[in-house]
Design a protein around this nucleic acid. Structure first.
Length: 294
DNA sequence: AGGTGTCAAGCGTCC
DNA sequence: GGACGCTTGACACCT
C-alpha cells in the first residue's frame, strides 16, 4: 500500500501549481512558469521519496492554460527531457502518480462545446503522464458529471461520450464516486459498460451510498482494476469536526485511519489523503501503516 | 509588506 | 433568473 497527498507540499517552500492571469499570457511567461513548476514537482517527489510517501497527485495547473486556445506554444517538446526525468525518478522509487481535473471537465454535458473543452483538458492531463513515460497505473480521475435533470440519461451520455474519447485518454481515465449525484453503484454501472476503473472515495461514499459497507465497497471498486492498471486508488478524507458538511479535516485522525486500514487491508489499495495539512498527515499515515505491518 | 478581491471553464441549490 | 457555494490556491492589484 502506498500513501499519498494531493498537489502541494506545504513544507518545502515552493509550489508546482504556479499560474498567471490569462490576460498576462505570453509564451515566455508560460515557459518560465512551467520550468518553475517542474523544478518544484521534482523537489516535491524527492521529499516524498525520503519520507516513504509513494503516491502523489499532480495539480492541473502544472502547465497553465494547456488546453486553452491561447496556448499555441509547444511546451511538450520544450520540456520533453524534464518530464521524462521526473517520470524516471518516480519509477525508480516505486511511486505512483495521478491527476484530477476539476469540476469543469464534464464529458456527459449537453452542450457539445463543453464536451469538446473537457476532452481537450483530458488530452492535456493524459499527455503529462505520457510525457513522463508512466505506465497505465498513473491515472486521470474524474467524476461522472452533472445530472441535467435526468440521471439515467446523463449516465448513458457519459458512456457514449467515453467511447468517443481518444485512446490515450481512455487508457488513463478513472471515475470517482461523488457525494451527491453518482455514487459507487452508478460508477459500477458505467464500469460494466465501458471498463473504466473506479477510484473509491471513502468520504463521498459516506455521504451517498446504496447501503454497501466500506469493506464491501472497497472489494467492488478493487475488482474494476485490471492488473496493468495497478492497485485500487482510494481518496481518503474525513469531515472536519463542527464545520460545514463536505469540508475536509485539518489533520489526520490516526485512530480513524487505523480503523480504515483494517477494512482496507484485504484489497491493499493506494490511498490518497485529502487532508488540509497535506504531507504532514501523509507522513503520519505512513508511520501508522508501518506500525501495523511491524 | 500585507490584505484582499478575483481568477477559463459549470453544475446544483436557494432565493 | 440571478447569486452563490463548491474546494482551494495563487495572482495581482490595492493600500
Amino acid at each position: 500500500m502506498r500513501i499519498g497527498y494531493p498537489c502541494i507540499n506545504r513544507r518545502i517552500g515552493c509550489t508546482p501549481n504556479s499560474t498567471f492571469r490569462l490576460a498576462n499570457y505570453s509564451p515566455q511567461r508560460l515557459v518560465e512558469t512551467i520550468r518553475g513548476n517542474l523544478e518544484c514537482l521534482q523537489r516535491t517527489l524527492a521529499f516524498n521519496a525520503e519520507h516513504g510517501v509513494l503516491f502523489f497527485r499532480i495539480g492541473s495547473s502544472l502547465v497553465p492554460f494547456a488546453s486553452h486556445p491561447v496556448c499555441d506554444y509547444d511546451w511538450a517538446d520544450h520540456f520533453r527531457s524534464e518530464f521524462s526525468r521526473i517520470g524516471r525518478f518516480a519509477g525508480d522509487h516505486g511511486m505512483r502518480l495521478s491527476m484530477h481535473p476539476d469540476q469543469f471537465v464534464l464529458i456527459n454535458a449537453l452542450d457539445p462545446d463543453i464536451i469538446a473543452r473537457s476532452a481537450a483538458e483530458l488530452v492535456y492531463h493524459a499527455q503529462v503522464l505520457d510525457l513522463m513515460e508512466l505506465d497505465r497505473a498513473a491515472r486521470v480521475q474524474i467524476h461522472i458529471g452533472g445530472a441535467y435533470g435526468d440521471r439515467p440519461a446523463a449516465l448513458d451520455r457519459f458512456c457514449e461520450n467515453y467511447q468517443r474519447l481518444s485512446e490515450p485518454v481512455r487508457r488513463r481515465l478513472a471515475i470517482e464516486n461523488d457525494e451527491r449525484l453518482f455514487g459507487l453503484s452508478d460508477c459500477l454501472t458505467v464500469h460494466r459498460r465501458t471498463g473504466v476503473p473506479i477510484v473509491f472515495d471513502r468520504f463521498h461514499h459516506e455521504c451517498l451510498n446504496a447501503g454497501e459497507s466500506v469493506r464491501e465497497a472497497l472489494r467492488l471498486a478493487a475488482a474494476t482494476w485490471q492488473a496493468e492498471d495497478g492497485p485500487l486508488m482510494v481518496d481518503y478524507s474525513t469531515q472536519a469536526a463542527g464545520q460545514r458538511a463536505g469540508r475536509h479535516s485539518e489533520h489526520l485522525d490516526p485512530e480513524a485511519f487505523e480503523a480504515f486500514l483494517a477494512e482496507a487491508v484485504e484489497v491493499d489499495p493506494d490511498v490518497m489523503l485529502e487532508i488540509k495539512d497535506k504531507e504532514a498527515s501523509a507522513i503520519e499515515a505512513v508511520a501508522v501503516l508501518k506500525a501495523l505491518e511491524a
